[in-house]
Design a protein around this nucleic acid. Structure first.
Length: 510
RNA sequence: CGGAGCGUAGCGCAGCCUGGUAGCGCACUUGCUUCGGGAGCAAGGGGUCGGAGGUUCGAAUCCUCUCGCUCCGACCA
């Protein structure tokens, strides 16, 4: 049996496998600062691809980018009651502005205390709202459609690279509208942007839907999400879009004069996706040999590894590879000839672990025959055997763009089949649900693939919903969302027995 | 912040119980031989054993405190 490129398999230990992919795929590493990550060049390249593509989509829908400060006056965050409640426990706070040398020891200067502490933004509703309050005067100023790419900090108890870090990178859209309909339409429009982006670019199928009341963003009237199914069957909330009603507008005095001359509060929205998407890509597409990147976000789509032998004929081989690279680049394909003075076999496996979509290996015989030998990362093996194909370089170059498209589509199809095939709709009683998922206490049980469950419900709120959430929590389950696209619900609510209004998805989640 | 486990070379670990001055595999460096594919042999380099204090002639090993990490809970994009 030939060995795998990683030391852990998904089946043996999914969390450990995830860490191995992140590390051995050169994506990121932990930092000296607790809970924060160092994103390495390959991982950063993926983020740059995500940014570039999504940014274009955000601009295409009429939004403009800008930038607000990292620090927010503490009083700002206190303005919206639910918002404070939701974020207060995880704030990084700046209280001083100077250090001093105290007998050879560097200490915080107690004389340099800030009059008002600054918090490091966990999200920017409050500071952007403060600007909106000044920017919006008239109905002619609306809608106000703003986005920013930024880092935010939430002092999480437990962190995992990309999935949950104390500092993470994201984009946050903030918009203000004249009325509810316009704001809700915006909220749903951006959810749809996220859905198509996740599916078309990340090849990550998701289900877009509305969060139950208990999972709403602090201060939102409605929260929508896209949810993706990871290879261990758990759900990952991959993006959110919030209709904030007039809560923030009222708290921050964001008002405009309408056409009738009346002073009216705006309806606002916010929406965001983060570096967590990269974690989603890893857990959607990775295999036991490492990462498999969808071509659209791979920093290098085709990597050419010349089989160098430290002999004079190497020069000719390098020239051959360079000329192929030139042709591929001309076709708009991100290509690299890996000339690092490392053994070819090692370079191959490094690119396998990094998930380069196509790895081309060129030896002397290929070169003299005008051929290339290549591997598709999405179909690396037949059983344990590595699959490689040889074809004429002209044919390869001519078909390269189509090959990448095919890989992109194959990765999506594979993930889509997993999502579609693992939503159980047969449960009718809580006992069945409980028996199926078990208490989920042991790691073994937690590790087994369970997938999701879809049940009809009556959309309870308040105390009734809390009770349901508690019962689910005992099984480590949560309601993910009520899919926007679903057939009409008939019969009784799975939880309350009252007439059902819609279906919701239940799953274990990250 | 509660429960459990773990910090020894870049990575993975042994040594600790029964104190005697640090070792294995991979990786790294050099040489030779190999090489249509994750090679073999040989010779090397690298560690104040997480930190501080204590016991002792002597501490990776025993004691106390402390910091950090991982997993499980609570919290969350």
């Amino acid at each position: 049996m030939s060995k795998r490129a990683l030391s852990v398999t998904r089946d043996a230990n999914f969390p450990e496998w995830y860490q191995a992919v992140v590390r051995d795929g050169d994506m990121a590493e932990t930092s000296p600062v607790r809970g924060c990550m160092i994103i390495k060049p390959w991982g950063w390249g993926v983020w740059e691809r995500i940014q570039a593509d999504l940014d274009a989509r955000i601009k295409d829908t009429g939004h403009e980018n800008c930038y607000f400060p990292l620090f927010i006056p503490m009083s700002f965050i206190a303005k919206e009651a639910e918002h404070v409640e939701g974020f207060a426990k995880e704030m990084a706070v700046v209280t001083h502005h100077r250090l001093k040398n105290d007998g050879g020891k560097l200490v915080v200067d107690p004389d340099a205390k800030l009059e008002e502490p600054l918090i490091v933004r966990p999200t920017s509703e409050t500071i952007i709202g403060d600007a909106f309050q000044r920017w919006v005067k008239s109905y002619r100023d609306l809608p106000l459609l703003i986005n920013q790419w930024a880092n935010v900090v939430r002092w999480e108890m437990r962190t995992r690279l990309f999935l949950r870090t104390a500092e993470f990178l994201w984009q946050e859209g903030h918009t203000a509208h004249a009325d509810r309909d316009d704001a809700v339409a915006e909220t749903l429009k951006m959810l749809e942007v996220y859905r198509t982006f996740a599916e078309d670019v990340l090849a990550m199928p998701v289900i877009a839907g509305e969060k139950p009341a208990n999972e709403r963003f602090p201060g939102a009237d409605n929260t929508y999400s896209i949810e993706a199914m990871m290879q261990d069957g758990k759900a990952l909330q991959a993006g959110t879009s919030h209709y904030l009603g007039t809560h923030f507008a009222e708290a921050q005095n964001i008002q405009f004069q309408n056409q009738q001359g009346q002073l009216t509060h705006c309806h606002t929205t916010s929406w965001g996706v983060s570096t967590r998407l990269i974690g989603g890509v890893i857990m959607t597409h990775g295999d036991d040999d490492g990462l498999r990147l969808p071509p659209m976000i791979a920093p290098r789509q085709i990597v050419i590894v010349p089989m160098l032998r430290e002999k004079p004929e190497d020069a000719e081989l390098i020239e051959y590879c360079n000329s192929i690279e030139k042709e591929l680049k001309a076709a708009g394909i991100r290509t690299l000839v890996d000339l690092k003075p490392v053994k070819s076999a090692e370079k191959r496996w490094n690119w396998v672990r990094r998930g380069a979509p196509v790895i081309v290996e060129v030896g002397g015989r290929d070169a003299s025959g005008g051929n290339v030998t290549f591997m598709r990362r999405d179909r690396l093996r037949d059983g344990d055997k590595v699959i490689s194909s040889t074809m004429a370089r002209t044919e390869f170059v001519a078909g390269a763009a189509a090959l990448l498209k095919d890989i992109q589509a194959a990765l999506f199809a594979e993930a889509k089949a997993r999502l579609d095939g693992n939503i159980n709709t047969n449960f009718t009683t809580f006992e069945q649900l409980s028996d199926y998922f078990g208490p989920g206490e042991s790691e073994d049980e937690g590790g087994a693939f369970k997938g999701w469950v879809r049940v009809p419900w009556s959309r309870p709120e308040g105390e009734a919903l809390e009770k349901i959430a508690d019962r689910l929590k005992a099984l480590k389950l949560t309601i993910r969302n009520a899919p926007l696209v679903q057939e009409a619900a008939t019969g009784k609510c799975f939880f309350t027995g009252e007439p059902a209004k819609e279906h919701v998805l239940i799953a274990r989640a990250y």
